[in-house]
């Protein structure tokens, strides 16, 4: 782990991102309510708020889902990646407000128990003949699990593979919410504006994922190079590596980050021990390879985090011949510094 990294990163940067995030959310809510009141002056306060919070949450989910592929496609989007967790928690707060208001508005005033009403009310011959609200509840449960475990404490205690798998449920939440909106609000829509927005959002989210996934597919499927020579493989030219930064190469599908610093070259696994961030997109800060996602640090020669931290990443032997970097096809386990 890095010396400067704190699990809850209330750095000036994060505070600024959070401020911009919440200013954006408040601006959206104000504009949404203003336009709604102009178009539908008779709308009641609770319906207005239900729609405003629901729409804000759905929009924020789209933004969050786009950040991953955008950061893969262009490094300018990387800073957004650092603030994604706080966006996720904000999304949950908005979704909770929407769900809770919908629940008390539509289900708390009748003879039925409000919980039972939530489950059975869409089954009849009413406005929606499909249980769209159950899908909203399922999505809300996923968003809650993700927000509640977003802290690094849970990443460590639940173990990274379980945590990652759980956070991939965000895609299920997205699918549930498309069902929630299409079988709910869009059933009564006649003019096509909202339908267009939901369809456009789907094209952007899925399109960006497909494009970035396709870009990564090619290097993943390259076989172990046939030019393998005495356990070493030709990787890149020294001149192609920017100073204090890395070039990422792929060996049999796994990525290796080759850094150049202080006239030296080293090769390490591209995968950060924290949350599998792409180390090769980070840079050398104070003599350490620094992960671009949350700032975990590793010494380039050994692959170990500087004491007192204990994380280690695999490193690869490096040979330079005629300005060409050759790296060992198999990694070494990181060596302890002391």
């Amino acid at each position: 782990m890095s010396v400067t990294y704190h699990a809850v990163g209330w750095s000036t940067f994060k505070k600024r991102y959070d401020l911009i995030l919440w200013l954006g959310i408040v601006l959206f809510l104000v504009v949404f309510c203003g336009v709604s009141l102009f178009l539908f002056p008779k709308v009641t306060l609770e319906i207005l708020l239900i729609r405003a919070f629901g729409s804000a949450a759905f929009l924020l989910l789209h933004i969050i889902l786009c950040i991953g592929p955008l950061a893969r496609l262009h490094r300018h989007f990387l800073p957004l990646l650092y603030n994604r967790r706080h966006m996720g928690v904000s999304l949950f707060i908005l979704a909770l407000l929407h769900g809770f208001l919908s629940w008390i508005t539509y289900h708390a005033g009748g003879d039925l128990n409000p919980f039972v009403s939530l489950i059975v009310s869409d089954a009849g011959p009413g406005i929606s003949r499909f249980p769209f609200q159950i899908f909203g509840v399922m999505a809300l449960v996923i968003l809650f699990l993700m927000a509640a475990t977003s802290h690094d404490f849970w990443l460590v205690n639940l173990t990274a593979p379980f945590w990652k798998a759980m956070h991939m449920l965000v895609y299920a939440a997205y699918a549930f919410l498309v069902v929630h909106v299409v079988f709910g609000a869009l059933q009564a829509e006649t003019h096509g504006f909202l339908t267009g927005l939901v369809g456009g959002g789907m094209v952007v989210v899925l399109g960006l994922h497909l494009v970035s996934g396709w870009r990564e597919h090619k290097p993943d499927n390259q076989p172990l190079d046939s030019r393998l020579d005495q356990g070493f493989i030709e990787a890149c030219r020294v001149a192609d590596i920017p100073e204090n930064r890395a070039r990422i190469v792929s060996i049999a599908g796994e990525r290796v980050a080759i850094f150049k610093y202080d006239g030296k070259v080293c090769a390490v696994s591209n995968v950060c021990q924290h949350q599998n961030g792409p180390l090769g997109e980070g840079k050398i800060v104070h003599g350490c390879i620094t992960c671009p996602w949350h700032g975990y640090q590793y010494l380039p020669e050994t692959g170990a985090s500087p004491p007192p931290f204990v994380e280690k990443i695999p490193i690869f032997k490096v040979k330079i011949q005629n300005g060409i970097v050759h790296i060992s096809a198999l990694p070494e386990i990181a060596r302890d510094l002391c």
Binding site: K164, M168, Y171, Y174, A175, V178, V179, V182, V198, G199, M202, L206, H209, L210, G213, E216, H217, D220, G253, E254, R255, N276
Partner: peptide, 22 residues
């Protein structure tokens, strides 16, 4: 890599299922 592959698999399924359901 396994995570990238799982990711690609999930996205391929979503690309078919979500627009179809919508």
């Amino acid at each position: 890599r396994p995570l990238r592959i799982r990711h690609r698999y999930i996205i391929s399924c979503l690309t078919i299922i979500v627009p179809a359901v919508a």
